[in-house]
Each structure stands twice: as structure tokens, then as C-alpha cells.
Design a protein around this nucleic acid. Structure first.
Lengths: 145, 145
DNA sequence: TCCAGATAGATGTATATACATCTATTGCAC
DNA sequence: GTGCAATAGATGTATATACATCTATCTGGA
């Protein structure tokens, strides 16, 4: 019996979907030992190349100081490599060899859960969802601050 | 300069939107001292009346044991009242008088941020977003487990 | 040159979140 | 009635997350 109440608050509703989705994806990724956030960072770095911590934060709509803690774990596990910039306050981040390998070994499990969900949602809703999620991110990050 | 990269992962994309949205709403709610999750729980309890902790978890797609910690804070602040069930393992939860009052004093700030976002997204996208978020929640919670 | 303000991250702290495991209780089979 | 499986939450632990504040560094003007 699934009595999902409609939540009147958009934030609550999206957060609930985010929790549910995170549980689904993390279950699929569990054998690889990657958490959702960690997988996301690997995938973004793999596409973006070397970026500053602050840039990575903007790309993920995540506070740069939050990344300090997450990256600490990922650097310790040697998935991510760092170097100080000429401006020595800055920190440049990139995927290490081990990180690239970790990502590639993780992709099959990710593709499986991702494509199953896509099938269940249908192509139209799927694409729409990407668009509206990104729109939401843009609006919410433009609005405040 | 806003270079929001498209994320290929639905989970990453929704989580990013969720973070952005949470920051927007929490900024609006900051003067009230309520976090997003706490506001959600007040609003749900206000509509659902007395519920078991496990039921609340299902309604929010949130692990019941996660609620133990969040509720501890809210009970300490006396926004939520608890009582043991006839089945003494169970815990019934409801809004206290103070909780109702807290919620009502918070609604104006919530309505402000919520309706501004609604304006910016447009009525059609807004409604669609609610539907697809709920659909996502249903699919993701049905799928696994 | 030197200093005042700005900036990039690091650190302290509070909350959110899930899972594995534990405890207390319940319900059932016998 | 006893004992065992199931269930509801509580607790231990790891990670995610943000904001306030701090530190190191940089930059521009006097």
C-alpha cells in the first residue's frame, strides 16, 4: 500500500524525489563502493578536465566548502588528483588514472539503472525531466545571492 | 557567468536541482529557524494528523531511522509530540500546539518563495514538475527493495 | 612599498541521510 | 505456554550538506 501524499511544497516534493532516486541509484552502485555524489564528481571531472574547486562547486550547485570534505575522501582514495594554482589559494582538480578506471568500471551498473528508469518514465518525460531539472537549478541559483 | 553543464545522469541532475532549491527555500525560511526537512515534517503532520514514525518515513521516502534523529530535534523544541502505541514498539507522532503555531508563522515566508518560483517557471511547467517529481518518487520507491 | 579590501579554500558546527546492527516487543506455530 | 521469526525503532558509523568564520594569499590604490 503506497499512500504517497501530494506535498504542496515544491522543495519538499523535489527533495523527496531526490531521496528516492538517490536510494535507487546508490543501491545499483553499492557493489562499486561509490556514493551518488562521488560518482557525479568523477563523471563531471571526466568531461570537464581540470577545474578549480570553486568552479566544480558552481557546476554542481554545491557550496565550495562542502567539496573540501567530499574531495578529501576522494583524494585519499586516489580517484582525484589536486595541485595548487599559480594563485596559491586556488586548488585545481582532475581525475587521476585510478579515478578514470574507477569511473569506467562503474558505468555499466549506472547505465543499467539509468536506462531502466528511462524505460519506465518514457522518452518524452525523461527528456522533459532533464530540461526542467536544469531550469530549476538555473532559476534557484540565479534568484538568491 | 553561469556555465551549468548538462549532467548525463538523472540522479545527479535531480540532486543538483534539489540542492539549489533547498538553498533557495532555506534562505527564505532562515529567519524562522526552520530547515527544509523540518518544515516539510510540520506541513505533513499538519495534514496527516497522528501517524506512526514508519508511516511518516514512507510518506517522505525517508528511512524511518533517519527520522529518529530529525524528530529528536523537533521533539526537543516541542514542535512535535509523541506517544507510544498499544504496540509498544510503535511511536505515534503529531503536531503540538507550538508546532502548529510555528508552522503558521512560517507559512508567509514559504508562500513568498514558492509563488515567486511558480511565477518564474510558469503555471504549466510548475504543475508538470509536481507530477513528474511524484512519479519519480513512486517509480524509484517501487523499483528497488 | 605598504596596507586595506577582496577572494579561495579550510575549519567549526549543526543538520540530513542511509545502512548495518542491536533491542524490545509482538505474533505464530506447535 | 514456549520459542522463533518478524517488526518498529534506536544506535553506531559514514557521508553529504550548508553557513559562519578563519587563514592565507592576492590586488589595487595611496
Amino acid at each position: 500500500m503506497n499512500l504517497l501524499p501530494n506535498l504542496p511544497c515544491m522543495c519538499s516534493s523535489v527533495r523527496r524525489a531526490s531521496r528516492a532516486l538517490t536510494q535507487l541509484y546508490e543501491q545499483a552502485l553499492r557493489p562499486t563502493g561509490l556514493r551518488a555524489t562521488q560518482f557525479t564528481i568523477l563523471q563531471v571531472l571526466s568531461r570537464a578536465g581540470e577545474v578549480l574547486q570553486g568552479q566544480l562547486g558552481e557546476m554542481l550547485a554545491m557550496d565550495s566548502t562542502t567539496l573540501t570534505r567530499t574531495l578529501e575522501i576522494m583524494i585519499k582514495r586516489e580517484w582525484v588528483a589536486e595541485r595548487r594554482g599559480e594563485d596559491r589559494r586556488q586548488r585545481w582538480l582532475r581525475l587521476s588514472k585510478a579515478g578514470k578506471s574507477k569511473l569506467h568500471r562503474t558505468l555499466p551498473a549506472w547505465e543499467k539503472v539509468q536506462s531502466q528508469l528511462q524505460r519506465e518514465l518514457g522518452e518524452t518525460t525523461w527528456k522533459h525531466l532533464f530540461r526542467v531539472a536544469d531550469q530549476l537549478t538555473v532559476l534557484a541559483t540565479t534568484d538568491h545571492k
